[in-house]
Amino acid sequence: MRFGMFVPQGWRYDLVGIDPAQHWQTMHSLAEHADAPDSVWESMWVYDHFHTTPVPSQTEATHEAWSLMAAFAASTSRVRIGQMCTCMSYRNPAYLAKVAATVDHVSGGRLEMGIGGGWYEQEWRAYGYGFPSIPERLGRLREGVEIMHQAWTTGSATLDGTYYQVDGAIVQPQPVQPGGIPFWIAGGGEKVTLKIAAKYASYTNFTGTPEEFTHRSEVLRAHCENLGTDFEAITRSSNFNTVVGVDEADVARRLAVIEARLTPFLGAEKAATLMAENYHSPNAAVGTPSQVAAKLAERRELGLGYAIHYFPEAAYDRSGLELFAAEVVPALR
């Protein structure tokens, strides 16, 4: 199993209480940690969002994903960098292909392209994007991925689509990586998203119960068979909200600290609901090292090849992240 980690950028109220003037240093320090030669982390990730969640804050920061991609590309040397995931409709896809190709050069060929249809309605409307229907958002995803694929493999893109029209959009230089930047197609939609993944993806990214993960994997396999692509060549990944403690009392203490940090911004009821949804759910990796390793081992048996972990404590306390690296990762390798 391979491992990635999220760097806190404020979106999940994970930089609150830190002076905004120190945000970049906080993020950069964690990037350096992930980038260390002996690090267990193959990749580091941010989210592509503009407003905090689940409540948009008028005062708390959410740092922009692609600005961070360029900064991390220039300030690290080993770890791969990605977004989980870029919202297709937030940027023109030909422009995004150009931006990503440049970042790939700055990084020396270490960029990953996480891409999805988008979902955060309040954010869409606040920025003037409207909020198209699910079929339109997925249609934009399909056309945008085609444009980026053309741009990175041929140096230009032309498409007279329903949602995007480009005519000889030149993207030079092409990415450093042969064949273009790897696509991580995010989402488990069976009819459209997984079909796009079957055609273009090097990686998928979806979560759910073990039963849901298995079902979506079989849907992906069927799409690959219909399209004549190689299901086994696509690595399946999932994101996990992760809290690891030396024992169950330590886990409970860590969860209480996280909830106390969120409560002033969300209120007690909403904070409690968020904790239940994020840390007692199928996409949570919460417990002692042996408990977390057992959960991930179960997913590995179902075909999970890549786990990306969000540590809500990371900006304040690295001990859980370090415990995961020291005890959970070796148990799975």
Rank of each mutant, 00 (worst) to 15 (best):
F3P: 03
M5C: 14
M5Y: 07
Q9G: 09
D19T: 07
A21K: 15
A21E: 15
Q22F: 05
W24H: 07
Q25I: 00
A31S: 14
D38I: 06
S39Q: 13
V40N: 05
S43I: 13
M44D: 00
Y47P: 13
H49S: 06
F50R: 02
F50L: 11
H51D: 10
T52G: 07
T53A: 13
V55H: 08
Q58V: 14
T59V: 15
T62A: 11
T62E: 04
T62S: 13
E64D: 12
E64H: 10
A73K: 01
T76H: 07
T76D: 06
S77A: 07
R78E: 01
R78T: 02
V79W: 01
G82D: 02
G82Y: 00
T86P: 02
R91I: 04
N92H: 15
P93L: 05
A94F: 05
L96Y: 07
A97N: 00
A101Q: 02
A101R: 00
H105Y: 13
H105C: 12
R110K: 02
E112S: 10
M113Q: 13
G114A: 07
G117K: 08
W119G: 02
Y120V: 02
W124R: 07
Y127L: 09
G128T: 01
P132T: 02
I134K: 13
E136D: 15
G139A: 08
G139Y: 08
R140W: 01
I147G: 10
T153A: 12
G155W: 04
S156L: 00
L159H: 11
L159T: 09
Y163W: 15
I170W: 05
V171F: 08
Q172S: 14
Q174D: 08
P182A: 04
W184S: 06
G187K: 06
G189W: 04
K191W: 01
L194N: 00
L194T: 04
K195A: 15
K195T: 06
I196Q: 03
I196C: 01
A198H: 02
Y200P: 01
Y203H: 14
T204Y: 03
F206W: 15
T207M: 11
E212L: 12
F213D: 01
T214A: 14
L220N: 09
R221N: 10
G228Q: 03
F231W: 09
A233L: 07
A233M: 07
I234S: 03
I234E: 01
F240G: 04
T242K: 04
V243I: 14
G245S: 11
A249D: 15
L255A: 05
L255M: 09
L255D: 08
A256N: 09
V257Q: 07
A260G: 05
A260R: 11
R261V: 10
R261E: 03
P264D: 06
G267V: 02
L274H: 08
E277Y: 10
Y279M: 00
A284F: 04
A285W: 06
V292R: 04
V292L: 08
R299Y: 15
G305V: 03
Y306D: 10
A307G: 12
H309M: 12
Y310P: 03
P312Q: 01
A315I: 00
P330D: 01
L332M: 10
L332R: 13
R333Y: 09
